[in-house]
Design a protein around this nucleic acid. Structure first.
Length: 109
DNA sequence: TGAATGACTTCGG
DNA sequence: CCCGAAGCCATTC
């Protein structure tokens, strides 16, 4: 059980840096971590994000702005509600005005 | 050690 | 932009 490979911690660390009312993509995080191409691992890391209450996994979506991970949340529309609570428009599990709310760690940092 | 899996991304059509 | 297929890489069995 190599739960803590450091990779996970990095993902969580970046996730915490996501500003309120903003979102980012798995690939963006992976790239920022220097693990570009491991976007899937970011998602996998998020699988353990449930243990990290400070990690807003709902702000992490795929590059289309689609809430692909919503299925892993407790309910069915929980993720969408969280985003809407931050002022992000979400329709059909897809973020609207994605460019306006998108936050690229590698670009901002 | 090797095969299977996955909250993705990119490429070609 | 949508669709199908391939690539990627860490984790798990």
């Amino acid at each position: 059980m190599a739960a803590n490979t450091g990779f996970f911690d990095k993902v969580y660390e970046v996730a915490r840096l996501i500003p309120f009312g903003k979102v980012t993509s798995y690939g963006a995080i992976a790239k920022y971590l220097g693990a570009a191409g491991s976007a899937r691992m970011v998602g996998w890391a998020m699988n353990g994000a449930g243990k990290h209450p400070d990690v807003p996994a709902h702000r992490v979506v795929n590059r289309k702005g689609l809430l692909t991970g919503k299925h892993h949340f407790d309910g069915t529309n929980l993720m969408q509600q969280l985003l809407e609570s931050e002022g992000i428009e979400v329709v059909d599990h897809q973020i609207q005005h994605l460019e306006s709310v998108f936050w690229d760690p590698g670009k901002e940092l």
